[in-house]
Design a protein around this nucleic acid. Structure first.
Lengths: 235, 235
DNA sequence: CGACCATTTGATATGGATCAAGCGATGTGG
DNA sequence: CCACATCGCTTGATCCATATCAAATGGTCG
């Protein structure tokens, strides 16, 4: 039913490249040195997803890999009683939906209207078997995700203030508009990312503002006023 | 200084295979179909580590990959104020020390006396470039670690009882001696794995015993008495 | 046997959750 | 274009799960 929503709200866009892609074998032969990113451009179909539309669901077949072109995406897992843990936030250029097995272990939703390159996994894994560059790129992406997940594990044993400070520094790092951060996600998303409640996130923002570490001109717009201080309270 | 300890307490064992391994190129040519495990056997040096000896430290060069032969190992990260998050527990057969970059992002210690196969990373990555089987095995191991880390993220938003129940089920799964679990780790290790304190872990064991879900004949020996109940309180 | 260390148990404190209003921005229908 | 409903966020009051502090117990090794 969530999938229905996704299908209904998703639109196939005209691809930026001709859709009559070269046949697999020829492509592999001709492309030994092409990067994963280039292959995805060639093989992927661009799709648009509306805000809050589901891109894929946990336990669905993981037949595709996704590369974000524009907008922002969240992945998450939900427990039986509704608690939600956000696995990650993805920004343009990021790849998500990487899976070892043949089913997704998380769900993915567009946080804002988003355009996504969708690539058949079978095509890519086949290619990886013949092209070491592609294989290495896939490995690198997976290893990077692993490192992020391990860093999150550490984050989740910290205090609320430490978690929020870490989060803000991470966001500033990833969307580098100087000290001004435009948050694409709601307080609920942040809370579910950090393992806190929206009330605690909100109160912590207020507290950090009181400490002159940040400014919060509007709820989605944060200005880092003292990175030093944020880093110090980082654990 | 921790490294010193590791070096002092580590002993090079006679390898189970001749140390004069075939030269790389020849090996690659002859081994297109050998698995990663077989290559590690051939190329690895066996080392012994005493209980609590450090195998590698965070921020040290990640020049080697490790495969546990016997004993048990923990990996962890430490925050500036001493809080510790255990990244994982490793049992015989498990591979650890996989890194994307050239430095370890975690430390590793033997929890019990342990024997470990140590393989030069450069040898393995070189091999992976030529042998797709090895590359795929490395990828699989990394992807599996990723999945575990993502599952841990969910665990860390659960209640203490849910975390302990999950932990016991995971241990029973991994060391399958029926319903009897021999824990190789201390309460402190469990606490740092689950993001709890030793007191809470201890009290939760007692509570689960009160609920007839487990028996705790000795502190390191747990018997699952009602898996059904444990699964139900799993979140 | 005695010292030591890990574990359990008990008493109390506290950070963050929960419950409950209030507030401000956004959008809708009249 | 305004009145009002809605939604997301903030703020306030209270509660509770787990941390912290402290002591007792038990198992291990010289």
């Amino acid at each position: 039913m969530l999938t229905q929503t996704a299908i209904r709200s998703a639109t196939v866009l005209p691809s930026t490249r001709p859709l009559h892609a070269p046949r697999p074998v020829a492509a592999a032969a001709a492309s030994e040195s092409r990067s994963l990113a280039q292959h995805m451009q060639l093989m992927g179909a661009a799709m648009a997803f509306a805000r809050n539309a589901e891109i894929f669901g946990e336990n669905e077949p993981a037949d595709y890999l996704y590369k974000l072109i524009s907008g922002t995406v969240r992945t998450y897992k939900i427990l039986s009683d509704g608690r939600r843990q956000i696995g990650g936030f993805y920004l343009p250029g990021d790849v998500f939906g990487l899976e070892l097995g043949d089913e997704h272990t998380q769900s993915a939703e567009a946080m804002t209207d988003a355009k996504v390159l969708v690539i058949k996994r079978s095509a890519l894994t086949g290619l990886a078997g013949r092209d070491a560059t592609v294989a290495r790129d896939l490995y690198t992406l997976t290893a990077r995700e692993l490192r992020r997940a391990q860093d999150r594990l550490v984050l989740l044993i910290k205090s609320a203030q430490e978690r929020v400070a870490s989060f803000l520094l991470e966001m500033a790092e990833r969307a580098p508009h100087g000290d001004a951060i435009e948050l694409p996600m709601s307080r609920q998303d942040i809370a579910d990312y950090l393992g806190l409640t929206i009330e605690t996130v909100s109160r912590t923002f207020t507290a950090l503002e009181g400490l002159a570490a940040i400014n919060v001109p509007t709820s989605r717009h944060i200005v880092l006023r003292n990175r030093e201080a944020l880093s110090r309270m980082n654990g």
